[in-house]
Design a protein around this nucleic acid. Structure first.
Lengths: 212, 212
DNA sequence: GTCTATATATCGATAGAC
DNA sequence: GTCTATCGATATATAGAC
């Protein structure tokens, strides 16, 4: 729990962890390089041996979180058989999405609330990465409609509503707050199926707890 | 469209409008008093004749937006007869919520994303105001369960999911973006009813377009 | 109620010794 | 790769003339 030197973690990684907490709780613009350095246990100037600017730290954290989320979801979907129903794909997608946002709430909050701190190039790249999730979910919903198992109120708005419902889990979920990750994920899978009028299919989960 | 002097608007109101746009698009911490002053068409020092600090501007905007939302929703619910079904109350609540977040997206985004700029006292007051909406929706859902018209997956999580789905409308809705406010509101009313397994009741809307 | 001028503090980032 | 010291810019807020 000491801020500075966790064994086996290099300085850049300690900087990432310290900056993540500060950005998530105080905001990117409200956090100074001196605060980050103090949390790491070094002087402000030494940060520039590891990151070229404050924006690069934010970019590193934001991009890393989205790439992890993408890998998390793709892994879950890849474990499904080739002839999997759209309903089962939806269950896996929602389960992975909710689990990630519950267990990586600080990283998720940076992605969703501190994007304006990025420069234009990085900002656009993040928007592009986020769009892939919308397209992925839209594809699953379209499949379900073709199969006849889903009936949508509106395809684009359903994608927005379902995704935002899952993302918002990062705003309130707390470990040890009376609800387990499994319970939340199961509830949200059921809610998403109700929104597309499909019947929830059981979720295949990884053996362990998921990303942290 | 000129930034400074709309006829009949006093300086404090011009400051509110200018600061609102800057806070919503650049973020509270990233916006300087000089930027606000430039948008108003005065010097930075003159702002302090109308607001005692930058935080007070944010507080004024945030509190005003939440009070307007509360009034907007209470007015919609008050127009319903005393014996109104939970289903119709849900329709009115969602309709009012979505319409407000679509037509007041900048104010809504300040409430939901710039709260960390407030001091502790003001922050807590905002959290308290927001909780009233959760309790209001929770009451409607409970009514529906008692009536037998709703069947919830989980009552607390349903409140979170439905509210966040509506709030997020402020993140993407654009006037003249191919979807009318009425279409969006109708879609979200249907989605919310699906989430509680009620059948959507028609919405009574005010004659005009709503708040702006 | 606006202006100019400024007090005071802090910001991100860099230079150079060790 | 860390430190100390500092540059130059900018921040919020205030003082006093008009």
């Amino acid at each position: 729990m000491s801020p500075a030197s966790a064994p086996g973690a290099d300085t850049a990684e300690v900087i990432r962890r310290s900056a993540l907490k500060l950005f998530a709780h105080e905001g990117y613009e409200a956090t100074s390089m001196r605060e980050i350095a103090a949390a790491v246990g070094i002087q402000a100037g030494s940060l520039y041996n590891h990151f070229s600017s404050k924006e690069e730290i934010l970019w590193d954290l934001t991009r890393g979180a989205l790439l992890d989320l993408r890998e998390h979801i793709d892994t879950a979907l890849a474990r499904l058989p080739a002839d999997t129903s759209a309903s089962a794909k939806l269950s896996s997608f929602i389960d992975a999405h909710v689990r990630f946002h519950a267990l990586n709430s600080e990283r998720a909050r940076i992605v969703n609330q501190q994007m304006s701190g990025l420069n234009r190039t990085h900002y656009r790249e993040i928007v592009g990465l986020r769009r892939t999730f919308e397209e992925q979910l839209a594809g699953i919903l379209d499949d379900g409609v073709r199969e006849g198992s889903f009936s949508l109120v509106d395809s684009r708005l359903s994608v927005y509503a379902i995704l935002q419902m899952c993302i918002a889990v990062s705003n309130w979920f707390r470990k040890g707050g009376g609800l387990s990750v499994d319970e939340v994920a199961t509830t949200y899978v059921a809610l998403a199926h109700r929104m597309v009028i499909g019947s929830p299919a059981p979720v295949r989960r990884r053996r362990s707890g998921g990303t942290s």
